[in-house]
Design a protein around this nucleic acid. Structure first.
Length: 961
RNA sequence: GCGAAGGUGGCGGAAUUGGCAGACGCGCUGGCCUUAGGAGCCAGUGCCGCAAGGCGUGCGGGUUCGAAUCCCGCCCUUCGCACCA
């Protein structure tokens, strides 16, 4: 009876072995064959679950692989230990956030150890410790010195439930992510980092990041949101300049109104006295809008006229000034020109408030529409149109004509003949034309628009209520899809620039503006400055002092860190409530002053931590610049996509700022980025009892407490949704190796995948089989010392020999390249199967068996280190797996034995031939061998062979007549 | 609405460069072992068909000796952004 696989005993035996041997300690001074591997450090929030394993197990496997490849690997671990959850948990449980945090850290470390996930623990950092946040504060001071940190009043997200400002990412659909309160907007004076100063570089340098996923780069591009266009100066009737940003300067002649953001500073000045009350009310309404209301899509446009007008600098037309909340103060100049003919939002706004629409860009389709109402034309028009070749449809006595722009004149002439007295029709296309019996009129300016409307009202009293021509046309269903378009095209109704088209239009308009000094080329970004203030206790204090005489004064560098006051933590507490913290003296004048009572956003802590690992204990500087320049950028950075924007953008920004200050010689922090997917699991929701752990769900998907049917959703594992699988239980039941193997095998690491208990069993079965196989063979191979002699192998031996080398190649390539551990493991399973098949045929060549087992263990060891270390030691190799070089494959071995070549005849596989490798890889011999084969001849049965395509080592395709 | 990624057996997925579609695992079916099985072992398993054979990678077309892979059009799913002028 073979000794069974007992993971518990094995894992306990090897658990601390690697750590004691120091395999995971980087030799920081030696950077010859260095590799900086980094996992995004975790927020220590309780316990690790199986979902976390995706990240750390992958990282550990890669690290072990790199060590065996002879790299000097730096793979450190630390704790993103400041933040709201610690504080909230502390309030609920009455413990100090620091104690809560360290308790969790200890738990995480215990779990890492159980998983066999090892780090260079000498370099452990925790952002909540003074020896770390001292340097976060140092960073703040440096940014302040450079003018990259500033204080300003701003609208912020305020959660009334948690009593603090929230980060944008903590606001989900307008509600506080934690307590669900509707987030309010509040005006507060806050600290900002000027990330916008780096917008262009952050955008441009994305092109340098060739080893980042396209998806992440795209998300950053969108987030930065560069828009190119023009800034145009309009003037109010009183002469006040109003700056407007537009990406479509070519539509300038079509601007029939201006809209300012409600908070725009000019509103105060421009508002007419009789409109003041209404304007004030609207501004109040806009300010009170919660994020939820503001974000609701498809909501009707709102706004008010402020009783003042401006002059369109191109057309000279007098146009009204409105305010509306669809214009944001934080983007561009906070004011826009309304071009309803070519912007959907402006079009809706104009339609709702009766503002004129003037088309100024010809639709590129070159199509125009004309609608003839019943009774407006004389009999015979239909026939005449047909005769002239116009396309139209008749609908309830009305004619709907669709014509090419080129035929417009011919069409107008024809229709005019048939119009009833007092009737008219329109041609809507490149410009809107009204065709009356006595002539045609063009909607080319506001005056013309007014004149046409007046004439129509006179002719047809039923349109008396229409406020604009656009409204008149909107009444005709047939026209609706052509009244506005946002495409580029030839400029029309645009004074001197009429006729300018395509690429030229924008460029020439900007030249025209610049020549007149009323506008210029301009670029705007969607990216906003980074708000870093938080009114909470558990964060790095902002190292600033407010002095009544000297104003804002930075804390001198030598006085850092500004320590968090060590106070008993009961209930909510901000630094502002702790007098012994607040009261201080001004470093400049020595008089009484107050400390800044805000702490920093935790994203500041994590925006530079990858530098601190280089010299974590240095208390004279944040990092050793010389070593940092040698070790960074990080060679491979692995973490979740959820950080695609914020953390990664902030880190890039801080790196560039430090580069500009001369502290480092690289300006991107992470050379290669890999974003691993999440592990999902069913989550059960009861309307009354909320999230129910999957294990407690009652028969028929019902709530165990009230019997209500539960809503099931497959979601990323998370403690709050109670759908986590505990590694502790898995390790108890199957061992850490099984969990590691399954985690890496379940699918490609970048994809989200559902956890499966059955899948875990499959991994367990494989390890059990492997164990049995090796242990069975040990007695006869333990003392075999001679290498394999490939020439002496029989056919089956050759097959296995080739398979072994193919497997080494495959696994090595996955570790070095796309990290597809799933297919690497599949290959190892195949090799295991091949070995056991080989052994079933007889005892086989002991040297070969030993060689296969040896390599199998080495190749699998990064994935399942415990079982491999145990089997390896039993093999009697004398040193540890991690001291053994990674196997190399032998090219010659890949060409040993026979290859199966499929033969296609007219596109269908009709035969498979086993051919010797030297034949199969030689196109000429391959062709001959296939054509002369019996099966192929029979299949061809005398048909003419027209063409033969032989792909060496792959297949042969025959085209027969 | 805009942008991106994706759609392959009952399920997770493989096919990395245009070259045997479904590797590997799960599940299922049958058998063995067992007092028993939510354990283990062996075999089978894309679909239709007794078979020969045919059909198959979201749908429709195209290029090619050959298409999951390339091109054109459409449908669906997921994610990101969402009044950004």
């Amino acid at each position: 009876m073979t000794e069974g696989y007992n993971p518990k005993a094995i894992e306990d035996k090897w658990r601390d072995f690697w750590r004691k041997k120091g395999f995971f300690k980087a030799n920081i001074k030696d950077t010859k064959r260095k590799f900086y591997y980094l996992n995004m450090f975790p927020y220590p929030s309780g316990k690790l679950h199986a979902g976390h394993g995706r990240n750390y197990i992958l990282g550990d496997a890669i690290t072990r692989f790199l060590i065996m490849r002879g790299y000097n690997v730096l793979n450190p671990m630390g704790w993103d230990a400041f933040g709201l959850p610690a504080e909230n948990a502390a309030i609920e449980q009455g413990v100090h956030p620091r104690d809560w945090t360290w308790r969790n850290i200890e738990e995480f470390k215990r779990q890492f150890r159980a998983w066999g996930v090892e780090y260079d623990w000498d370099r452990e950092i925790a952002t909540c410790e003074p020896d770390y946040y001292k340097w976060t504060q140092w960073l703040f001071l440096k940014l302040y010195e450079r003018g990259l940190a500033y204080r300003a009043e701003a609208d912020v997200n305020w959660c009334p439930g948690c009593d603090t400002v929230l980060a944008n990412e903590q606001v989900v659909a307008g509600r506080c992510e934690r307590c669900g309160s509707v987030v309010e907007r509040k005006k507060l004076t806050q600290w900002f980092f000027k990330i916008t100063a780096y917008a262009q570089r952050l955008l441009d340098d994305l092109d340098k990041l060739t080893e980042w996923p396209e998806r992440v780069k795209l998300m950053q591009r969108n987030w930065i949101g560069r828009s190119e266009g023009a800034q145009v100066t309009f003037k109010s009737e009183q002469g006040d300049p109003i700056e407007v940003f537009t990406t479509r300067p070519d539509t300038l002649w079509g601007a029939t109104f201006l809209v300012l953001a409600p908070e725009h500073p000019l509103v105060e000045k421009l508002t007419a006295p009789d409109r003041r009350k209404e304007v004030e009310e609207y501004r109040k309404f806009a300010a009170s809008q919660t994020e939820v209301e503001r974000l609701s899509t498809e909501k009707e446009k709102t706004g008010v006229f402020i009783g003042a007008c401006a002059i369109n600098p191109a057309s000279g037309a007098k146009i009204p000034i409105w305010i509306s909340d669809y214009v944001l103060m934080t983007y561009g100049t906070g004011a826009i020109m309304g071009v309803p003919a070519h912007d959907e939002r402006d079009f809706q706004f104009a339609l709702k408030f009766g503002l004129p629409v003037i088309p100024v860009i010809a639709p590129p389709s070159g199509v125009a529409k004309s609608h003839l109402r019943r009774g407006t034309y004389r009999e015979g028009l239909g026939e005449a149109l047909k005769e002239e070749g116009f396309e139209f449809e008749e609908k309830e006595g009305a004619l709907q004509v669709t014509l090419a722009e080129d035929d417009r004149a011919r069409y107008v002439a024809l229709v005019q003949e048939y119009l009833q007295p007092g009737a008219w029709t329109e041609v809507v296309g490149a410009g809107w034309q009204f065709v009356f019996a006595d002539g045609a009129m063009n909607v080319g300016s506001i005056e013309e628009e007014r004149a046409i409307l007046k004439k129509c009202k006179r002719l047809d009293p039923s349109v008396q209520e229409r406020r604009t021509v656009a409204e008149l046309l909107w009444g005709v269903e047939f026209y609706r899809d052509v009244l506005f378009h946002a495409e580029y095209g030839e400029m029309i109704n645009s004074g001197p620039l009429t006729g300018t088209g395509g690429e030229e239009a924008i460029r020439r308009t900007i030249e025209w503006l610049e020549a007149r000094g009323i506008g210029k080329h301009a670029v705007t970004y969607r990216l906003r400055d980074w708000l870093v203030s938080r009114q909470r206790y558990w964060g790095a204090p902002i190292p600033m002092i407010h002095c009544p005489r000297c104003g804002v004064v930075p804390v001198p560098e030598e006085e850092l860190p500004v320590l968090l006051p060590d106070v008993p933590f009961i209930g909510k507490k901000g630094l502002a409530e702790i007098p012994e913290f607040v009261e201080t003296t001004c470093p400049r004048c020595g008089g009484p002053a107050r400390r800044d009572t805000d702490t920093m956003d935790t994203f500041v802590d994590s925006s530079w931590y990858f530098l601190r690992y280089i010299s974590p204990k240095d208390d004279t500087r944040p990092f050793d610049p010389e070593l940092a320049n040698r070790w960074l950028p990080v060679d491979l950075y692995v973490g979740g996509v959820e950080h695609a924007i914020l953390h990664l953008l902030y880190s890039r920004f801080i790196t560039k700022a430090l580069y500009d200050m001369g502290y480092i010689s690289f300006d991107e922090p992470f050379r290669r980025l890999f974003t691993q997917g999440m592990i999902t699991y069913p989550a059960y929701w009861c309307p009354t009892h909320h999230w129910i752990p999957p294990g407690e769900v009652a028969e028929g998907n019902r709530c165990p407490h009230c019997g209500a049917p539960l809503e099931v959703q497959v979601l990323a594992m998370s403690k709050s949704k109670k759908n986590v699988v505990s590694p502790d239980e898995l390790i108890e039941k199957y061992g850490a190796d099984t969990e590691r193997l399954y985690t890496l095998f379940m699918g490609p690491p970048e994809r989200d995948i559902e956890w499966s208990e059955e899948g875990v069993r499959g991994a367990w079965r494989f390890l059990t089989r492997l164990w049995g196989l090796v242990v069975d063979q040990l007695p006869r191979i333990r003392d075999v010392k001679e290498p394999v002699d490939p020439a002496a192998l029989d056919k089956a031996g050759q097959e296995l020999w080739r398979k072994l080398h193919a497997t080494i190649k495959k696994v090595t390539e996955e570790f070095e390249g796309r990290l597809g551990m799933n297919t690497a493991i599949a290959a190892l399973m195949e090799l295991t199967r091949a070995l056991s098949d080989y052994l079933e045929q007889g005892p086989g060549d002991a040297r070969l068996v030993r060689e296969v087992i040896r390599n199998l263990i080495l190749l699998l060891s990064p994935i399942t280190p415990f079982i491999c270390e145990e089997l390896w030691s039993r093999l009697g190799e004398g040193r540890s797996v991690l001291e053994t070089p990674w196997p190399e494959y032998d090219k010659a071995a890949l060409a040993v034995g026979e290859v199966e070549i499929p033969v296609q005849i007219n596109g269908k596989v009709r035969a498979r031939l086993k051919l010797a490798s030297d034949v199969a890889f030689d196109p000429q011999r391959l062709k001959e061998a296939v054509l002369s084969a019996q099966v192929v001849q029979a299949r061809l049965s005398g048909r003419e062979v027209r063409r033969v395509i032989a792909v060496p080592g792959k297949l042969v395709s025959i085209v027969a007549g």
